[in-house]
């Protein structure tokens, strides 16, 4: 009976082992062989079954691509508000900042993907992807803010999704490293950004509706000035 238990626990231990000693085994096997190559396939940064189960690894690649696309879209919005007809330099600044932040995050996520022993795939898209129809950056002030708010929510909800995938309490899918990366580098800042944009739309909404819409043109001018000076 005891022997059975020992054998069983040995088996369990074997199936439960992830990376223990495998790189070392590669080295011991290959060094001293009559060949001058060293493959060492298991000497890599992959651990915790990253990329082997579930979709956390591919979702992280897709998350970099999402930031990349949105970064260049924000750049175009910044350009549009900076032409001589719109001439809203505060709005332009707001979008330029969103673009810069998304660009920096793109590079950061790519580095993180490779830190976990994976490679970057620029074609990878999320399973959550929603097709956008008739996308345009040529929008007026409130429309553009609304779009930015929706986009920031899309980015934030994607982080929730990846976090959920990474924290499923199963042996193969639990990845606390990815979860804490998202929490630390994305989730808190995203909630602040969303609150800020929602606040802007609330302000504009009030300006537009009060005083029978008479304040509109002055309100937009002043709000743009405010955006130039704040943040």
């Amino acid at each position: 009976m005891k022997a059975v238990i020992v054998a069983l626990s040995c088996l369990l231990a074997l199936s439960g082992t992830l990376a223990a000693d495998t790189c070392y085994q590669d080295v011991s096997l290959d060094c001293g062989q009559a060949s001058n190559t060293l493959a060492l396939p298991r000497c890599n940064a992959v651990y915790g079954e990253y990329g082997r189960h579930g979709n956390v690894a591919t979702e992280l690649q897709a998350y970099a691509n999402l930031h990349l696309e949105r970064s260049y879209e924000y750049l175009l919005s910044a350009a549009y508000f900076n032409n001589y007809q719109t001439n809203r330099l505060g709005f332009s600044k707001l979008f330029k900042k969103l673009s810069d932040e998304a660009w920096e995050k793109t590079i950061d996520i790519i580095k993180h993907v490779t830190m976990r022993g994976d490679e970057m795939n620029f074609e990878q898209r999320s399973t959550m992807k929603v097709e956008r129809k008739n996308y345009t950056v040529e929008l007026h002030e409130l429309e553009a803010l609304a779009k930015a708010l929706d986009t920031q929510k899309e980015i934030a909800e994607r982080a929730f999704y990846i976090h959920r995938e990474a924290t499923r309490n199963s042996q193969h899918l639990h990845d606390p490293e990815v979860a804490q990366y998202l929490e630390e580098e994305f989730i808190e800042d995203q909630s602040k950004k969303i609150r800020e944009l929602a606040g802007h739309t609330s302000d504009l909404k009030k300006f537009i509706t009060t005083n029978n819409g008479q304040d509109l043109s002055l309100a937009l001018y002043l709000f743009d000035e405010y955006l130039q000076k704040s943040g």
């Binding site: 580095k111 490779t114 830190m115 022993g117 490679e119 970057m120 620029f122």
Partner: peptide, 13 residues
């Protein structure tokens, strides 16, 4: 974008 791919390549383990 091509430079991003180069950065990603040399960043691999």
């Amino acid at each position: 974008l091509q430079y991003l791919a180069m950065g990603a390549h040399f960043s691999k383990d």
